[in-house]
Design a protein around this nucleic acid. Structure first.
Length: 475
RNA sequence: GGCCCCAUCGUCUAGUGGCCAAGGACACUACCCUCUCAAGGUAGAGACACGGGUUCGAAUCCCGUUGGGGCUGCCA
């Protein structure tokens, strides 16, 4: 193939479970490479295993890629619809003498190879000349020699054939297996760069053997790039079963897709100048496979969250309002939907935007605007009961706020004055008022919030809270 | 067990033989700012797995050891 031609890459997931962050990373790197080099990004669903694939997983892949913003140029192709291609390849391989039929059961193979130095199939049927029909087909791996995988990230990796078994390329029911379908499609689609997880590195020499058997030993192979694994805190490959890795989870938590991609791009790759906070455009412009590093990376939610916060703060105000309110509309919120007031949200949004790291953090920060009475934080309330100054502050606030001018500065000054009167700094003086009005010790700036909430509601909440605290205050 | 990959602060990483008494980011600690919380500012603690080579000189090259991981399916 012409290496000067526009590259073609594919993301080839198998629909066997929820879309997870490792897949997202692989998809992203393929997409970045394609965009950077003005190539083609193909989506290919590898669903040759009828027993495991499920339709909902396929739509999960599609919606995950859509959310991430990784639009594909071709596809989705589905291997389950391309069996004719694999059947043809199988026949060519059979006719060329590259395959043989195997009549051994899995149990038989295990039994025979139990004590061997090199487990895996022992070639028992290799010279038996069994008929093809109704049997699994194995590739006749050369006994001698070595297959070299030239990998942009890892250099030349050698696999001695003596350590490779005669692998199965098609099942007894004649359906193709991963290595076969994968290579046949890569050939058919003109894939120039194979970018995938490092867990596929050991199967690559098998693919190369097939590639050469199908296309001739002089064929120009695609460029391989095996990305370092994403691992959990125990440094194990991320697993759908034991790790919280569903992409949907992060979507529901209110992470920004562009922030998620930004973080993912930093796992195994880095900007030549060390820049960390980047737009998709910046990442595309500076991405290079040669800059991908070798070692596994831990998926760190803490740093992801920080990056997300940075992206949120960089959103312009209108976009923050539009996107966050749309998100709030899709998740469970503590207030009744009809109580959400867009104009109130618009007024408070800028104060929230600079305080949250994810959209999910917005909810406890604004809920008191849309609830009849605030959700009182138990610890916050307990810290105030039995405290004489709490009562005094509330009483003074009730009096003062009932007829002072209803502006941020005024509320600020009068609260400070009240505190001053009983020897409290503003930080202490505002505490009971904050809890009374918002239910919490932390939140957006209090006086702005009070102005937006309105005098009437504030006074009602102060009154209610004074009663609550009085009732629970020991005499 | 066999084959393969990997090895710099807790984490993500910069570093491709001298510019490194190892730089940045997240997290952490202290202080500043401050109506709470964030954000921001300043300071701080924190790493080249080990052992041999090669070299005038090694985090950087080679070998070994150790450690971790992946693969080893008629899954992908």
């Amino acid at each position: 193939m012409d290496t000067n031609a526009a590259p073609k890459v594919r993301f080839a997931p198998s629909p066997t479970g929820y879309f997870h962050v490792g897949s997202a990373r692989t998809a992203l790197f393929n997409w970045l490479f394609a965009r950077r080099n003005h190539g083609t990004f193909i989506l290919r669903i590898e669903d040759t295993d009828e027993e495991r694939g499920r339709e909902e997983w396929v739509s999960g892949i599609l919606s995950a890629l859509a959310w991430l913003g990784l639009e594909c140029d071709e596809g989705p192709y589905r291997q389950s619809e391309r069996y004719a291609l694999y059947a043809d390849a199988l026949t060519r391989l059979w006719d060329g003498g590259y395959l043989y039929a195997c009549g051994c059961s899995h149990e038989e193979v295990l039994e025979r190879t139990k004590g061997n130095q090199t487990p895996g199939y022992d070639g028992h049927c290799r010279e038996l000349g069994l008929a093809r029909e109704g049997r699994a087909l194995r590739f006749r791996t050369p006994r001698d020699g070595t297959t070299v995988v030239k990998d942009v990230i890892r250099g030349a990796v050698e696999f001695p054939h003596r350590a490779m078994e005669d692998f199965v390329v098609s099942k007894a029911n004649s359906s193709p297996l991963f290595v076969l379908a994968n290579v046949v499609d890569d050939i058919d689609m003109g894939i120039t760069h194979v970018i995938r997880g490092e867990d596929l590195l050991p199967s690559t020499p098998k693919g190369i053997l097939l590639w050469k058997a199908l296309e001739g030993s002089e064929v120009e192979l695609p460029v391989f790039a095996h990305l370092p694994m994403l691992v959990n805190e125990k440094r194990q490959k991320l697993s759908k079963r034991r790790d919280p890795v569903s992409l949907e989870y992060y979507r529901e938590q209110g992470y920004l897709p562009e922030a998620f991609c930004n973080y993912l791009s930093l796992l195994g790759w880095n900007h030549p100048l060390g820049k960390e906070l980047m737009t998709m455009k910046e990442i595309v412009q500076s991405f290079s496979l040669e800059d991908v590093n070798h070692s596994p990376a831990f998926f760190d939610v803490v740093k992801l969250t920080h990056i997300d916060g940075e992206h949120i703060r960089r959103l312009d105000s209108d976009e923050f309002i539009a996107r966050s309110s749309a998100w709030l509309d899709t998740v469970t919120v503590p207030w009744e939907r009809h109580c959400f007031e867009m104009d109130t949200y618009q007024r408070i949004a800028h104060l929230v935007q600079e305080r949250v790291a994810t959209f999910g953090e917005i909810i406890p920060m604004v809920d008191f605007f849309f609830l009849e009475s605030p959700v009182y934080d138990k610890v916050a309330v307990e810290s105030l009961v039995g405290n004489e100054t709490t009562q005094r502050m509330l009483t003074m606030a009730l009096n003062t706020f009932s007829d002072c001018s209803w502006e941020t500065d005024t509320l600020h000054e009068t609260t400070a004055a009240m505190g001053n009167e009983i020897g409290l700094k503003l930080s202490k003086a505002q505490a009971p008022i904050r809890v009374a009005v918002t239910g919490r010790r932390v939140g957006p700036p209090l006086f702005e919030s009070m102005v937006i909430l309105g005098r009437e509601k504030v006074l009602a909440r102060l009154q209610a809270f004074a009663t609550l605290v009085a009732r629970t205050t020991p005499e």
